[in-house]
Design a protein around this nucleic acid. Structure first.
Length: 105
DNA sequence: ATGATGACCGCGG
DNA sequence: TCCGCGGCCATCA
């Protein structure tokens, strides 16, 4: 993939993520597709991973296609993401499965 | 150059 | 629902 497109890819993916409404979630794959880069779900994760801590981007509204948080359930990151989502009204089942609150069906 | 590693995905069993 | 497997694509040792 060309370098110039890399920039476009990141820019568009951030735009898409920023468009996810409060209380709703979207999967990595969906973000990639809507950004115009199907098959780049892993890239989304890679970008969020390097996101600066002070970023205001709602990274926590991105979960995997199984409607689950992609961090180990015992990790701090998992707790943080879950807490942020619950603060917006997102509900989890006992097995940490997120209720059907996907932005894009 | 090559193989391992991810904040992944979809299909089966 | 829970696993395993193959496919996917960039990054790094």
């Amino acid at each position: 993939m060309k370098t110039i497109e890399q920039h476009e890819l990141a820019e568009r993916m951030f735009t898409v993520i920023g468009a996810i409404p409060r209380g709703k979630v979207a999967s990595y794959g969906q973000v990639a597709r809507l950004a115009g880069f199907p098959n780049y779900a892993r890239k989304v994760g890679q970008l969020l991973k390097h996101l600066p801590p002070e970023s205001t981007l709602p990274w926590y509204r991105v979960v995997n296609s199984q409607r689950r948080i992609s961090f180990a359930s015992d990790s701090d990151k998992f707790q943080e993401q879950k807490q942020r989502l619950e603060a917006e009204g997102v509900t989890f089942s006992g097995t940490n499965l997120i209720a059907k609150q996907c932005f894009w069906e």
